[in-house]
Simulated assay, not measured.
Amino acid sequence: MVTWDFMLPYYGDVQLMQGAVRSVLAQTDPDFRLVVIDDGQEPDVPGWFAELGDERVHYIRNERNLGITENFRKCVRLSEADYVVIMGCDDVLHPHYLETVRGLVRAQPGIGMIQPGVEVVDGEGAVVAGLVDKAKRKVYAPQVNGRRTMAGEELAVSVLRGNWLYFPSISWRGEALRKVGFRPEYSVIQDLALVVDLLELGEAMLIDNSATVFQYRRHAVSESSVQAFTGTRFTEAARYFHAVAGRMDARGWRKAARAARFHSGSRLHAITMMPGALRRGQRAGVRNLARHAFTPGVRGQD
């Protein structure tokens, strides 16, 4: 019987984290382990976990703040199960999540990645469909009616064109995940990098949208957040797309290389951020966003 690890890298809102934990404990399939790695210093959190009294729950508080990428890498190192979920500390599992993905593995043993059905909720838990998620589903995601398996260059082209995946909802084959892990040089685009790395190793993804089993929380970008509109996050994205385009060329995946160089989904995201940057008077941010959105991709060996 396949067992699952739910790895929960935590930092931030205590109540949302508690909701995420309760959603794991409410699974109809009880055969799992939940490991929470606390990268914060909220005083009442350790006591709350001690009071749960559930032997499936393992709570660890970091001695010092590791930051997002290093805490994610720690989650991978401490995972043990055949399949692993690295869920967000503010996301919510439907009660049948584990029952559903376990059934998918039984139907397709050894599958490397499983992207189940997802709905997006806002900070209050209401189901929403904003511009980003509409673009993901209508423009970039493959049209799947039920189940579909994708792998190799086909999936690489799809996600490099526009990353339509919901990373915290994915179940990863543990052996493959632990072999690859997260690249330490990325802090924003590490989820896409992981998927492409696994595709290069020959792993496949099973996409199943026949049932919604996960709530992905998307918080509104605060107008008061200067950092959100500086455009610096796209500097990392551009660096990644340039590097991965070269790898795709070397592998002979020319369509994937072109998708990486053009990275239309990332460009569209930068464009959507520009009005907010203008309203905030972030001139440098507008320049950074415009540079990412409108600078032609580096030509390869097409």
Rank of each mutant, 00 (worst) to 15 (best):
V57M: 03
S187Q: 15
T295H: 06
Y10N: 13
E55S: 01
V35S: 13
D197A: 13
H263F: 06
L201H: 11
Q143S: 11
F241R: 00
D38S: 04
S266A: 09
P168I: 07
Q301L: 12
N288K: 02
K136Q: 11
S158E: 14
S266C: 02
I68P: 04
S79H: 04
L177I: 04
I170Q: 06
T272A: 14
I207Y: 14
V226E: 10
A81F: 04
Q41G: 03
G112R: 01
E185R: 15
A238H: 01
I170R: 07
E55K: 00
M273I: 02
H94K: 15
T28E: 14
E154Y: 02
R22L: 13
F294R: 01
V105Q: 05
E153M: 06
L155N: 01
V132A: 13
Q282F: 09
G12I: 05
V121E: 15
D54P: 03
A26Y: 12
Q215K: 10
M248E: 04
N288S: 03
R102I: 04
T149F: 09
V213Y: 12
K134C: 14
G103R: 06
W48T: 01
E153G: 05
S158L: 06
I60W: 07
V120D: 10
Y11H: 14
I37L: 14
G110C: 05
P46I: 01
R178M: 04
H96I: 14
R251M: 13
V84F: 03
E154F: 05
L34D: 01
L278C: 09
L66Y: 08
R254Y: 12
T69N: 14
D5A: 01
P168W: 10
R254F: 12
M150P: 01
L177S: 03
Q215E: 15
A26E: 15
F32D: 03
D91A: 15
T28L: 14
E236C: 08
R258M: 09
H263L: 06
V35K: 08
N145L: 10
D44R: 01
L34Y: 07
Q190S: 13
R178T: 02
R173F: 08
R56V: 00
R279T: 05
K136T: 08
R239M: 12
W164E: 00
R73H: 05
K134F: 12
L278A: 11
P95K: 03
Q15R: 12
P9W: 08
R102D: 08
N288E: 08
H94T: 13
V226W: 14
Y11D: 08
W48E: 01
E200G: 02
E124Y: 11
W164F: 15
S23V: 12
R280C: 11
D249I: 02
R291P: 00
S171K: 07
D197G: 10
Q18D: 07
I68D: 13
V76Y: 03
R254N: 02
G162F: 05
G246E: 15
M273S: 02
L25P: 05
I37K: 05
H242R: 00
